[in-house]
Design a protein around this nucleic acid. Structure first.
Length: 885
RNA sequence: GGACGCGUAGCUCAGUUGGUUAGAGCACUACCUUGACAUGGUAGGGGUCACAGGUUCGAGUCCUGUCGCGUCCACCA
């Protein structure tokens, strides 16, 4: 007796239990194995502050599908997991937590604060990992890494030193993106441009020693406190007289030079530009060019500093208003107008960025970009979909230096030490010691007054090393040798510049070669209105809720099947019903098969058995369809077409196996061949489905009654494609029978024939082969179409019969007394119109010399054949219409 | 300002290299407790493939332009 399955699939009962077994058995582990080819993926490490959202669900389901697929195909499949310390994000979270108790990080001091963060990390940092397990991810957990691990931290310092020694890291005073809330510098990528409805203010700047003035336009009037010049385009005739004059800065009465530079846009504002070298990138450049003083007017929190005189202490926006008021009072304010422009915002806290002059560490990117551009140009790395190649290359070709220092505490502290005495001697230029550990004394002067740079490195400065540090670099580990470069990188579009591009550069620079071969960029998960899902908008669908409600497999299958390659996903809860219903269907089909299976019958080698077995058309058909589907799924997965793979499996299992084969098999359940085919198709389908729906397939697998099965479907091999069993001819013959049955069912439905009532059917055909096939399969045709008597051969149409023509078959259903002749005539005429239209269009095509001469022969022949068929059909329909009249 | 993506059935979306008069899921209509499944079955209705040109024997598919929606990049203050 078979083990019975419950009536409906209950995911909750099985998922955690199965996952635990997999983990205990060590199925997720991979190690260098000379006997196997490696297949490796590194996970985009989620932040330790992260909780699973739909973006993860999609991202990690895709990776898990790939890994499970490749593992089954016999690769040594390594999915390297880990988490990212997420400097700013994590520091913010811990600071917020402390703030609830009224504690600031400064109260604790650096060391205590950092140990608080570690404590937080111990407690909450692996939440997301637990959630990934809920998702069924088959990561190699034993190898899990963290960007602040000892090993990875060590690698980060090594890399810093290497780049410094190579002259690719430098310290400099430049305009950077400053977040006044996080109080740190950000890279250009971390500053997100958003359109803002701002104002453009026109302000009069008096000319020294004259009555006149020059009007400048600015969106940030408060920065005038740091103005040191007025710039004019040399071509601008309006301001010719200004050359060589001195301008008086209102409110502060600072004297400003007038500089002439083509950088100034004649058309913008008044054409006169106020120059604030310490607070604007363009002005900064002008400042350098003309030797202007750089006056920083703000504190770290964007309040005005002592330079601002009476405005000191005001927030930048407060100061803006106060300044405008004061200018108005003095009659120096001209006007303001609405002005829409893009302003940078902090990608972590969305505060408006303040461009600000400050000393920071930078990586020179151009030299690093060169080999990374080449790797993609030469096709060593491929993007899927390919359009991202251009996005990548455009960015790389215009790459700018990377600001890597952050004024926070949580992160890899910059391995730079300053000898205070040397610094004094050199006015701050010298005294830099780059070293992994704090030197006892200064190698220059022997002094011991040495302090480490207080800044930490950008989080991405550790992430960009992820594909090789996780395998042990800089040590030359066997893992690194075997698994690097990795095979696929699966990620979202938002992260191409932050992470993907930089990993390619790091791989080329430090490993001498690419970090991965293929980059699959999937879409962004959005809500049904197209808005990106985010917690703050409250439009999230929580994957854990969906797992609770529909099951993990349903979540995975649904999200993958609605995500076309690289297109964004528009999600609503109801979409998960698709996966749940499918899981239930698979469950019940399996349940039915298991209920009827006789163990003694199925213990055979499929190939050997089928050599001599007498297979029916449906038998051969379902096997052909199975292997065609299998082959198609393999192709789809190799091309990252996950939705197509999922849909193809769905179509096969539901609408071919369940709807037709199992239904047909019901009358011959006890036959050995049927038993074997039901079992084998189920068993292979489960394997085929396993990467998509790991839990349900495992649960059913465990109930399969075959001694020689692998102990888990996870480690079973991917089914072998039996090419000889794939037959187009078989598929088309079966297709005809399916059409025949559908046609009869259609007539039954049109004529409202009682569901239980059987009908007689006469199939008129001159095609002997068709007639034979129908006779041979008479049993199930009759049963599925509810036919009491089926005649096949050359017949003339009986009186009062409904008729349908498919291909060369004319199907008569005698319906004495049931037919409404008007209705039948209308039905036939509709059919006639349709076929007539088709014939006319084909005829026109065939008459066209261009078509017959230029189109491929098989297309032309196909058209001719089709037209002949249609003409026979239409004649028959005409006959029938006449008869009805 | 630049780049990219998308406009196909009421809704959400597929549609491989151009080739019989376009598909799915949901929703809708009618019927069905048929020996796994109502999270099911059978049948059905529903589309000028955004618009306008062009290339071609042939265009949902390729090219150009227009309109609408969306995303990314960008130092006009």
């Amino acid at each position: 007796m078979m083990k019975e399955l419950a009536k409906a699939y209950n995911p909750h009962e099985v998922e955690d239990r199965i996952y635990k077994t997999w983990e205990e058995k060590g199925y997720f582990r991979a190690k260098p194995n000379p006997g196997k080819k490696p297949y490796s993926i590194v996970i985009p490490p989620p932040n330790i502050t992260g909780i699973l959202h739909m973006g993860h669900a999609l991202n990690d389901t895709i990776q898990d599908i790939l890994i499970r697929f490749k593992r089954m195909q016999g690769y040594e499949a390594e999915w390297m997991p880990g988490t990212d310390h997420a400097g700013i994000a994590t520091q913010n979270v811990v600071e917020r937590k402390l703030a609830k108790n009224g504690i600031k990080r400064q109260d604790l001091g650096r060391d205590k604060f950092i140990s608080e963060v570690w404590k937080w990390r111990e407690e909450y940092g692996s939440t997301i990992i637990k959630q990934l397990k809920k998702l069924g991810c088959s990561c190699d957990w034993d190898r899990m890494r963290f960007t602040m691990d000892e090993g990875l931290s060590d690698a980060v310092l090594d890399v810093f030193i290497k780049l410094y020694e190579k002259g690719l890291i430098y310290r400099g005073n430049y305009i950077i993106n400053w977040c006044p809330r996080c109080q740190t510098a950000l890279s250009d990528e971390e500053s997100q441009h958003k359109d803002v409805e701002g104002m453009l203010y026109y302000i009069k700047y008096p000319i020294k020693g004259e009555d006149g003035h020059v009007i400048v336009a600015t969106t940030r009037p408060e920065t005038m406190l740091g103005d040191t010049a007025i710039a004019i385009n040399p071509k601008d005739k309006r301001y010719k007289a200004l050359k060589g004059k001195t301008i008086i800065l209102p409110l502060l009465d600072r004297e400003l030079k007038v500089v002439m530079d083509p950088l100034v846009d004649l058309k913008f504002g008044t054409g006169a530009l106020k120059v604030t070298p310490a607070h604007d990138p363009v002005d900064f450049e002008l400042g350098l060019k003309y030797g202007l003083e750089q006056i920083n007017i703000m504190n770290g929190d964007a309040t005005i500093n002592s330079i601002g005189g009476e405005y000191e202490g005001m927030d930048r926006l407060e100061a803006r208003e106060a300044i405008i008021e004061d200018l108005k009072e003095r009659g120096l304010f001209v006007k303001s107008e609405a002005h829409r422009h893009a302003v940078g915002h902090c990608y972590r806290c969305h505060t408006m960025i303040e461009p600000r002059l400050s000393p920071q560490w930078f990586v020179k990117m151009k030299p690093l970009a060169k080999p990374a551009i080449e790797a993609v140009n030469k096709g060593k790395i491929k993007f899927y979909p390919s359009r991202w190649t251009k996005v990548y290359l455009d960015w790389m070709n215009n790459i700018r230096d990377w600001c890597i220092s952050r004024q926070i505490w949580w992160g890899h502290r910059i391995p730079v030490y300053y000898c205070k005495s040397c610094q004094q001697k050199t006015e701050g230029v010298g005294g830099i010691i780059v070293a992994k550990v704090k030197p006892e004394k200064c190698p220059e002067c022997g002094g011991t007054n040495i302090e480490q740079d207080p800044d930490v490195l950008d989080t991405w400065f550790s992430s960009w090393l992820w594909p090789f540090t996780t395998f042990g670099w800089p040590k030359e580990t066997p893992e690194l040798k075997y698994f690097y470069p990795t095979c696929s990188l699966v990620t979202a579009q938002e992260i191409i510049f932050f992470w993907v591009a930089r990993m390619i550069m790091a791989g080329c620079e430090f490993m001498g070669g690419i970090p991965f071969k293929n980059v699959y960029i999937h879409g962004t998960v959005r809500d049904i209105t197209g808005t990106k899902m985010s917690k703050s908008l409250g439009n999230v669908i929580d994957p854990l809720d969906m797992i609770e409600k529909y099951g993990t497999d349903a979540l995975r299958f649904s999200i993958v099947s609605i995500t076309a390659q690289g297109q964004d996903v528009f999600l609503s809860e109801s979409k998960f019903e698709l996966g749940r219903n499918f899981a239930n269907k698979v469950w019940n089909a399996s349940r039915f098969i298991l209920m009827n299976l006789k163990t003694e019958d199925i213990n055979v080698d499929l190939c050997v058995y089928f050599k001599d077995a007498d297979l029916t058309l449906p038998d051969r058909w379902i096997l052909s369809r199975l292997y065609s589907t299998l082959s198609h799924i393999g192709d789809c997965l190799d091309e990252y077409k996950f939705n197509e793979a999922a849909n193809s499996i769905y179509e096969f299992l539901w609408h071919e196996f369940c709807d037709w084969y199992i239904e047909i098999a019901k009358s011959r359940m006890s036959e050995k061949t049927t038993q074997i085919i039901l079992y084998k198709v189920l068993e292979k389908s489960l394997r085929m489905l396993h990467p998509f729906m790991p839990f349900i397939t495992e649960e059913i697998w465990q109930k399969l009654p075959h001694a020689s099965l692998d102990e888990s479907i996870m480690i079973a091999s991917w089914p072998h494609i039996q090419k000889p069993m794939m037959s187009k001819e078989t598929e088309s013959l079966m297709g005809e029978l399916i059409e025949l049955i559908a046609a009869v069912r259609n007539m039954r439905s049109v004529w409202n024939i009682e569901p239980q009532g059987a009908v007689d059917v006469i199939v008129n055909t001159h095609d002997k082969k068709d007639a034979r096939v129908i006779s041979e399969n008479e049993e199930f045709i009759k049963r599925m179409a509810r036919i009491s008597d089926l005649k096949v051969g050359v017949f003339s149409k009986p009186k009062n019969a409904a008729v349908t023509v498919i291909g060369s078959l004319e199907i008569y259903v005698p319906l004495e007394g049931l037919i409404d002749f008007k209705k039948e005539k209308a039905r036939l005429e509709k059919e006639l119109t349709r076929i007539d239209g088709e014939i006319k269009s084909i005829a026109a095509r065939l008459k066209n010399k261009g078509f017959t001469d230029k189109a491929p022969k098989d297309v032309v022949d196909g058209q001719k054949r089709h037209k002949d068929e249609l003409e026979v059909q239409i004649e028959k329909i005409r006959d029938n219409i006449r008869e009805v009249e």
